[in-house]
């Protein structure tokens, strides 16, 4: 088991923007090569910032501290050419809306092979061959014909398959998926998730799956990292986190998710309040003012992410959720 991504107290602060607390605060985690890490969190949790950091991209004027290592590259201090090489060879990324990240006036073929040909990694014909093989692997019918098409001639699901092929053409070791299936229909989403799972098994590519949908993360991820206000609230094996959450935030998220089974007549439990604004800093837990189990201890001092069970960490004064709500 080799560790491919390692973060240690990784922090992004934007003091220039007048923020009272870091946007990413002390993320510490390891990702084993070939595994799938799910990063879940709501708007403002910092999940997209973290995934962009894995591409070596930080906000302007950011003060970055701690370490973030991908393979042999220390991203927080890497030279621009190292970062460029990393994006070219080692990390692929797909986003929520494929139509927003593909040039509409170029054919699919150009989109797929331009990068690797320009970089001198493959000849045009080699790249073409690999692109067609990848499209076929993405279960696109008649890949040669797809190569000649323009983005607007393809459906959302087809285009997202093209994007995945594009992300994989340089055979990266890590594939970042930022809400990659959010805009798709539920059946198309299921197909894409099945495809990603296959790629992981067959190509051994490491997946970082960023989503706000816990159930979806449950379909694919080995490990789940629950982010809130830039901090890791809970980290552990997906099945365990979903079936017995240790952090009140994880539990509240799971409870407010509409489900196909169970009682639908009562009001859906929701989390009162809003995410702590960046302009205010909390002396204790960042979730304290929305947490129904809040104690004095929660707001008086820093709460650390601690091991609560083998392989499981939680940032809470309780290592188990208090009884009444189970």
């Amino acid at each position: 088991m080799t560790t491919i991504i390692q973060a240690r107290s990784f922090t992004i602060d934007l003091p220039e923007a007048g923020h009272a607390r870091p946007v990413i605060n002390g993320i510490t985690l390891d990702v084993v090569a070939g595994s799938c890490l799910g990063i879940v969190g709501e708007s403002g949790s910092g999940k997209s910032l973290f995934s962009r950091a894995l591409l070596g991209s930080f906000p302007e004027d950011a003060e970055v501290s701690g370490t973030l290592r991908l393979g042999a590259v220390e991203l927080t201090s890497a030279a621009p050419e190292t970062v460029r090489a990393l994006r070219q060879n080692d990390v692929g990324m797909i986003y929520q809306d494929p139509r927003a990240s593909i040039n509409p006036v170029h054919r699919i073929e150009d989109f797929l092979i331009e990068g690797v040909v320009q970089a001198g990694m493959l000849s045009r014909s080699e790249a073409r061959e690999r692109a067609i093989a990848l499209l076929r692997r993405m279960r696109l019918q008649e890949p040669e014909a797809v190569m000649r098409r323009y983005p607007d001639e393809l459906s959302g699901g087809m285009l997202q398959r093209v994007m995945i092929a594009g992300a994989l053409i340089a055979e990266p070791s890590v594939l970042l998926c930022d809400e990659a299936t959010t805009a798709l229909d539920v059946t198309t989403q299921a197909e894409i998730v099945a495809l990603l799972n296959e790629l992981r098994v067959e190509l051994g590519v490491t997946l970082i799956f960023v989503t706000h949908d816990l159930e979806l993360a449950g379909e694919l991820c080995d490990t789940l990292c629950v982010l809130y206000a830039g901090e890791v609230m809970e980290l552990g094996p997906t099945a365990e986190v979903l079936s017995s959450p240790r952090h009140p935030y994880t539990a509240a998220l799971l409870e407010s998710t509409p489900r196909l089974t169970g009682d639908a007549t009562r009001a859906l439990p929701s989390i009162p309040g809003v995410v702590l604004p960046l302009s205010s800093a909390a002396p204790g837990c960042v979730f304290a003012d929305r947490c129904r189990f809040v104690t004095e201890q929660c707001t008086s001092g820093r709460i650390d992410l601690v091991t609560v069970a083998p392989g499981r960490r939680s940032r809470c004064v309780f290592d188990h959720l208090p009884e009444e709500q189970r």
Partner: peptide, 28 residues
């Protein structure tokens, strides 16, 4: 987000009772 979604769904149910408005809820 799910926590906000839950708030809005609950709100819609309250409004339906309070305002007597009918809903056509389009969703996937």
């Amino acid at each position: 987000d799910v926590s906000v979604q839950a708030q809005i769904l609950n709100l819609l149910n309250e409004l339906r009772r309070a305002e007597g408005v009918g809903f056509l809820f389009i969703t996937h």
